[in-house]
């Protein structure tokens, strides 16, 4: 059911959730901009932004679950992630995007775009990762 799916996603994607940026500023989740993530990563001691380009989106035999294949970072490492179709990724210059923006809006009231092949999502890696 949709309730079960909603409960498996963390609460901070719900519209109105308060998010603290690295400089201490508070913003609502729906108001976050690309710059907020970039500036927060800039002053973070241990995190840095990595770009993850969507290469493929596939449905699975499990309803409500998709596999998103990303090309990550300058080394273009291939990473496949199994996600709920309502899971929102943050796309550079666009904002929250999911495989099913209708479901994301329905469950979280979060304004959301359709995640598409070629979208560049914000992801994080650890600084000084050897």
């Amino acid at each position: 059911s949709s309730m079960a799916a909603a409960q498996t996603l963390p609460p901070y994607f719900t519209k109105g959730s308060i998010i603290q940026l690295a400089n201490g500023d508070l913003k609502k989740v729906e108001d976050l901009k690309t710059e907020d993530f970039i500036q927060s990563a800039d002053i973070s001691n241990d995190l840095k932004i990595d770009s993850s380009t969507v290469e493929r989106i596939e449905s699975t035999h499990s309803p409500g679950i998709a596999v998103v294949q990303f090309s990550v970072g300058e080394h273009r490492a291939q990473v496949s992630v199994e996600v709920l179709i309502e899971y929102p990724f943050f796309v550079f210059g666009q904002g929250w995007s999911s495989c099913s923006p209708e479901r994301t809006s329905q469950l979280f009231d979060l304004p959301c775009c359709k995640l598409s092949v070629g979208d560049v999502c914000i992801s994080l890696t650890l600084k000084n990762l050897k």
């Binding site: 901070y12 927060s40 990550v72 970072g73 291939q78 990473v79 999502c121 994080l124 890696t125």
Partner: peptide, 25 residues
């Protein structure tokens, strides 16, 4: 009277998936 309510505040990095694949040597 307005009762003070605690409001959850989430750190910005919670919202970004960590994707840290093994880097080539």
């Amino acid at each position: 009277n307005v009762e003070p309510r605690s409001v959850a505040v989430f750190p910005w990095h919670s919202l970004v998936p960590f994707l840290a694949p093994s880097q080539p040597d």
